[in-house]
Simulated scan of single mutants.
Amino acid sequence: MVRLDWRVVEGAAGLLGCEDREAVLGDLVEAGEGAWRGLLDVLGLVVRRQTELWRSWRPWVAALGVALPFSFLLMGFSVSVSLGYRQVTLHGGWLGLAGRAVLLVVLAWASGFVVGSVSRRTLWVSVVATLSPCLFCLARFRIASLSRGCLLLFVLPAVLGVWWGLRGRTVGAGVGLMLALGVSMGMGLWGGWWGNWFLVWPVWYLVVLGRGDEKAYPRG
């Protein structure tokens, strides 16, 4: 088998878990399968594994309950913070802007944490579910006074949240409760549109996780 062909097969096998990946690649080497046959075998196994994962509620919550709707809401919140910055440079009101900015960071981080912790093995679907609305809105952004980049203020804290969730970390119940109460109060003061309240539930999810062992939460 040509070296490049092996790299293609190995790349496809990267979609599998560590144990499956090593076992499948070992079997292909022993069987002396050709590149195309090996690639089809690996992709077939990937499809079967992914189908099994989607029988659980976790990937549905991560992709369709958080990643997709939260992308639209967090982009709207990002634009609100950007518009608020322009206003305070003219009329003041830095406290309100700071409150909204902190809310944006915490809400984006918490949503990313839920995606990373609830369904790690279907993370790629959640990434697609996040990127699709972002690309759609970037292509249609028409606020002359703002750059398109203002839509993506939430991305970095969300990525950090995903990373935190993938590593199996959480926060203590006390810290989580203080954070959730603070965010809920902040939403009442600076949250704006009532639909933004939907963004709060991942923060309360942290409280639920914190009541048990820091590493004892469901993963997909």
Rank of each mutant, 00 (worst) to 15 (best):
V2Q: 14
V2L: 15
R3C: 00
L4D: 15
D5G: 08
W6Q: 06
R7E: 15
V8F: 10
V9A: 07
E10H: 07
E10S: 12
G11Y: 00
A13W: 06
G14L: 01
G14W: 02
L15W: 05
D20F: 02
E22M: 11
V24S: 04
V29S: 06
V29W: 10
V29A: 14
E30H: 00
E30Y: 00
E33H: 11
A35W: 01
A35L: 02
R37I: 09
G38I: 05
G38P: 06
V42G: 01
L45I: 06
L45A: 02
V46D: 04
V47Y: 05
R49Y: 08
L53G: 02
R55S: 11
W57T: 12
W60M: 05
A62R: 02
A62V: 01
G65C: 01
L68P: 02
S71W: 05
F72G: 03
L73F: 04
L74C: 03
M75Q: 11
M75A: 05
V79Q: 09
G84I: 04
Y85W: 13
R86S: 12
V88T: 02
V88I: 07
L90Q: 13
H91V: 11
G93P: 02
L95M: 14
L95F: 13
L103H: 05
W109V: 04
G112V: 09
G112Y: 11
G112C: 10
V114K: 06
V114N: 08
V114S: 08
S117M: 05
S117V: 08
R121S: 11
L123M: 04
V127A: 13
V128F: 09
A129V: 04
A129W: 05
C134L: 15
L135I: 12
F136K: 06
F136L: 14
L138M: 14
R140I: 05
R140G: 07
F141P: 00
R142H: 15
L146T: 09
R148T: 14
R148H: 07
G149H: 12
G149F: 15
L151D: 01
L152V: 13
L152D: 08
L152T: 10
V155R: 11
V155C: 09
L156K: 02
A158T: 09
V162A: 06
V162P: 04
W163Y: 08
W164L: 05
R167D: 12
R167S: 10
T170Q: 08
A173W: 14
V175I: 12
V175A: 15
G176N: 03
A180V: 06
V183T: 07
M185G: 11
M187L: 15
M187C: 00
L189C: 10
G192H: 04
W193N: 09
N196E: 07
F198K: 07
V200F: 09
W201N: 03
W201A: 11
P202T: 10
Y205P: 00
L209E: 10
G212E: 03
D213H: 13
D213I: 00
Y217P: 00
P218D: 06
G220R: 08
